[in-house]
Amino acid sequence: MRVLIQILKNFACISLIIITVSCETDITDDISLASSPPKLVINGGLERSVNTPLSSQEFRLTTTNNFLSDDPNPIISDAIVSITDGTTVWGFNHQGNGVYSNSDITLQLTKNYTITIDWNGDTYKGSDTLNEVPKFDDFFAVFEEGTIFSPEGYFLKFNSTDPINVKNYYYNRLFRNGEFLISPDPGNSQNLITSDEFFDGKQRTNVDINGEINFQLGETATGQQLGISKNYFDYLFELFTQTGNTGISFGGNPPPATIRSNVINTTIPSNRAVGFFYVVDIEEKSLLIEE
């Protein structure tokens, strides 16, 4: 619902193909990009799931590297990380491969959680709030024919009722046989996240978890509806807009800019961190795709 620009971009591609001889060339090997000094990256956050509780909370810390580098992002193993809800402090220890975890923390609705990261002489802080997510009223898979925007196959769908007079922000996640799946699609900023601005208090029906990703018979399909904060919604909106960018200048192509993290370097603010420290509530269901 948020922005149709992505659709418009597809529209641009189509009309271009029809009216002109357009052409895309891979120039990865012909271009060299400058790199800024490595920045702290936080990838992950805290997740509360009533249906399938997590045994521990974890996220990953790395640094940025050159955009065209084939190397993975270098991990950070020497950070000191803690999270607090204002009264209790939980320490997070490095488990290897940049992953930090803690198994004592129990998340509570409406609480605000603050992360503190000490790394490389600087202190970084960021916080997010846990917002309750409504249940699925129904959860099912439907077979659909392909269109120019989506493939053919089984698609996960749900019905869910939005709580009235509360501002809700949603993010849908999809798993195939337990593996998280996402496609850098132009429609993500419209299809994977949404606010209840236009359906406050109403039931939504036949909502796609992810209309880009199909399932075949015999696969286990897991869908999640996440209750997220407005800040995380805004962050994801920018993130999906940028990662879904098809590179065509019409149909709305905002000048690219860094996506502001909620994790702030309190020692030297201009030494920014990237990524978002989120706290989310999850409604999750799974089913086996059958005829």
């Binding site: 920045k39 990256v41 990838n43 790395t62 940025t64 050159n66 955009f67 850098p184 990662t243």
Partner: peptide, 16 residues
Amino acid sequence: TYPTGKFEQNGLIVAD
């Protein structure tokens, strides 16, 4: 504006 770095987020590579 060309990217000056990359990082991972939500299973996607993001430009900085």
